[in-house]
Every structure is written in structure tokens, then in C-alpha cells.
Design a protein around this nucleic acid. Structure first.
Lengths: 229, 229
DNA sequence: TTTTTGTATTCTGCATGCAAAATGGAATAC
DNA sequence: GTATTCCATTTTGCATGCAGAATACAAAAA
């Protein structure tokens, strides 16, 4: 026979990937707080695998910046450093502005409608004063814009940085003014997307993320001297 | 006694880091061509370590995108995909434009002088028609600008992408016109840096990288349909 | 009490072992 | 000649073993 059997969809994923995904989720969701030690014995027992793939997962997560490897003292969940947070948000701003441009050019109408749906969900949560719900849909919108840019490198990079930033939970005391302003900005962003106005969306997203950064910096009390963010 | 002995500078680095660094260099320098299989037995023999840290290094390099892990078939040097290359260059453009702004604000005069020195070295190689020498100093200048932005996240991200891109060696047949134009752009960039003109350097770097991208796309024959780069 | 020292235990970093999968031919069938 | 089957060898993925570093903690000293 000369036909090929397609390589079995996903019979089994490598254990180190499985482990990395599970730990990553625990970290990003906040179940594993910054500074928490990642005890190998406990985690191998919890995940039902051996130390080898677990330790491989540690290395992957360290490369992503979610975990810190201390020589001879194992791995801890990386601390949320105010300066690094600010720097990351600055970079995310540039990335998302670029993503917005591409999304204007490449996104299908169906994809824009997905974003519109999320937008109205978000408005609903804002109207109710539900910050957590707002936050969730807000995140989803930003991620969709980046995804529909069609640039996979951009998407991967952005998501990784978002994983670091999400842990900060700085939104907890978002002021009402800033919240309302953000909603206004989102309305404009949606309009620009619908109009496929790349220049405008770039400017809007750039400003939107700059405001977000400013509000985070205010929250943190501007601990850094230089303006690298 | 209550004094602390400082934690020994670097008595020994973890083996997986050592291995990752060595393999990364081999890949970025082009000694290990895209598609090359990374045989564990050979590499452990060559590096004088066991499979465990070597395989950890593979996972790190896979996370960085330099290596691809094929289930049950080990690791290969990742292929240079034209689309991914274009997407990466687009992202690097946005990153470097941002870096330029920060560098204008943060770089010391001494740091600018370093960049000036590299610039003149580059001009010398251009004058001699030495493409390899030009390429080397051109790279160095761009990396310095990103470094002196003072944004470590930006720097790390940019360097990682640069590692992927460098392997393409697309500069091999840079046209004389484009080369001369690039030199002109670099002169302007240097002037804007010296003048600490953030707005201008952002525009200049954005254009400069867009031109670079265009020249690479021309080289590759524009294989992608959508404009995601 | 507070600090220091000694020691048992735990944990990490790396090497090695083992089963399953993949690879490379040689022999066979078409 | 080309394609298929079989088997030996290699290679991978993961588990386990072992030495040394780190940690915890009790006893001794200040």
C-alpha cells in the first residue's frame, strides 16, 4: 500500500508540555502566587509523572519568564517586578498598535463580528459595575485583535507577555473615571476597526495602552526613575 | 557572626544553560543548518554531559523558536519559514521604533558615542564595499539602540527575534541602491539620536525597518498573500 | 533568651536504565 | 525492477538512582 495514515490527531502529548501548560495556568490564574516554591516531589505526585518531564517544564516556564530558577534551590514562581511590569506593558502597547493595523487589513467581517459581540458583552458588565466580568471580556477583545492581525509571531509574543501581566491584578482598584474613559476608547477602537482605518486604530490602541500603563504606574507609585515605559 | 558572604560570583552554571547557549550559538551562526537533526548521543559526547541537561536545553530552544520538537523523533533546527521571517521582521520594526524613542530619552552621552563609533565603523565597511563587515556593525548598532532603550523586556524580546532572523542570511544579495539608501537612513537615525528627537527617530526606525522588510520580501518573492508584515 | 553549631532530612542536579517508537536494511513478494 | 514485510539497531521519552547542596531543627554556647 502506498497511502499514508495521517499522524493520529493527538493520541498523547509529551508530558513536559502537559506539565508546563498546567503549571502555567496555575500561575496565570493566580493559584500559584509569585514567590511560591515549586516543590518537585509535590508536583510529580499531583500530576502523576516523574521529575524529568516536570523539570523540563520548569525550564520552559523559566524561558517564558513565569518561573525563576535558583541554582541548587529549585524553581519559584517569578516575582511581579513593578519595573518589569511597566516595561512589559510598554512593549505590549507597541505590539497591539501594530496588531490593530494588521487586523484592519486582514480580519474578516465574521471575525470583526466576534469582536463586536465581545465588546457588547463588555459594555453589559460595565453597565452592571461588574469589574471582574468587564476585565474578562476586555482581555478577550484585546487578544482577539492581536489574533486576527494574522501575524502569528506577534500573537505568540503578545500572549506570553499578557500571561506575565495578568498576574498583577492591578485592575482591582481601577478608578471609575478611568474605567469610563476606557469604555469610551473601546467604542472608538471598535468604530475604527469597522471602518478599517488602520492609521486611526494604531493611534487609538497606542493611546489606550498608554493610559492603561499610566494607570498601572499610578497604582504602583511610579517606582522607576527612567522612562522606559 | 552575622555577616553574609556574597553568593560566589559564578562557580558553575547549570549544564542545561551551558548546552542551550552553545547550541544556540551554533544555530544562529549557521553552523547548524535549518532542518539538521540534533542527535542526542552525538551532542552529549561533544559537550561532555548526559542526556538530561541536553534535553532540557532542547526544550528551552524550542520555546525560543530555534528548535522544533518532533514527537518521538527528537529535535531539529527549526526551518526558516518565509512567512514567519516576514512576520518577525514586522514585529521587530515596531519594537525597534519603540526602543528608539526610549533610547532618545534614556541613553547617556557615552552610550550615544558608542553608537556613533559603530556607525563610523559601518560607514568604513560600506565605503570598502565589505558587505559582511557592514552587516556586522549594522547589527551591532541596532542591538545597541535597543539595549540603551533601558527596557529589558524589549531588549530580550528583540534579541530573541534577531536570533531567528539572522539565520536567514538574506543580506547576501543586497542591492547597491538599497545599501546606499540604508546608509542614508542610518545617518538620519544617528542625527535624530544626537538631537534626542524621539518622534523623529521613531518614524525613521519604523521606515528603516519597513524598507528592510520590503527588501527581504522582494528577495523571498513575496510568498504570503495577506499583509501581516 | 538569643545566637551558634552540629546533624538528620530533604531536595536538587545530573547520570543512567528501560520500554516503546522509529529507522535501516535484507529478504521476500509482486 | 519496485514494493512489502520482517527483524536488528538506534533513538527517544520517561522513570529512577545517586552524590552533593540546602534546609530544618535540636543541642550547646553566649
Amino acid at each position: 500500500m502506498e497511502y499514508m495514515q495521517q499522524p493520529t490527531p493527538v493520541l498523547r502529548r509529551p508530558l513536559h508540555e502537559e506539565a508546563a501548560d498546567r503549571i502555567r495556568d496555575l500561575i496565570v490564574q493566580g493559584q500559584l502566587a509569585p514567590g511560591t516554591r515549586l516543590n518537585e516531589r509535590l508536583l510529580t505526585a499531583q500530576f502523576g509523572l516523574s521529575r524529568t518531564p516536570l523539570r523540563e517544564a520548569f525550564k520552559v516556564l523559566a524561558t517564558e519568564g513565569l518561573v525563576e530558577l535558583l541554582p541548587n534551590r529549585g524553581a519559584i514562581v517569578s516575582q511581579i517586578d513593578a519595573e518589569r511590569l511597566a516595561q512589559t506593558l510598554a512593549v505590549m502597547g507597541a505590539l497591539e498598535a501594530l496588531a490593530g493595523e494588521f487586523a484592519c487589513l486582514n480580519a474578516t467581517e465574521a471575525q470583526l463580528n466576534e469582536i463586536r459581540a465581545l465588546h457588547y458583552e463588555m459594555l453589559a458588565h460595565h453597565a452592571r459595575g461588574d469589574l471582574a466580568g468587564y476585565f474578562k471580556f476586555n482581555q478577550a477583545i484585546h487578544l482577539k485583535i492581536v489574533k486576527y492581525s494574522g501575524n502569528a509571531v506577534l500573537h505568540t509574543t503578545y500572549r506570553q507577555m499578557n500571561g506575565y501581566v495578568r498576574r498583577a491584578r492591578y485592575m482591582a482598584n481601577l478608578s471609575r473615571e478611568r474605567w469610563d474613559a476606557a469604555i469610551g476608547e473601546h467604542n472608538e477602537i471598535l468604530a475604527a476597526l469597522g471602518a478599517r482605518d488602520a492609521k486611526r486604530i494604531k493611534a487609538l490602541l497606542s493611546d489606550h495602552l498608554a493610559h492603561k500603563l499610566a494607570s498601572v504606574l499610578a497604582e504602583l507609585g511610579r517606582p522607576q526613575a527612567k522612562q522606559v515605559a
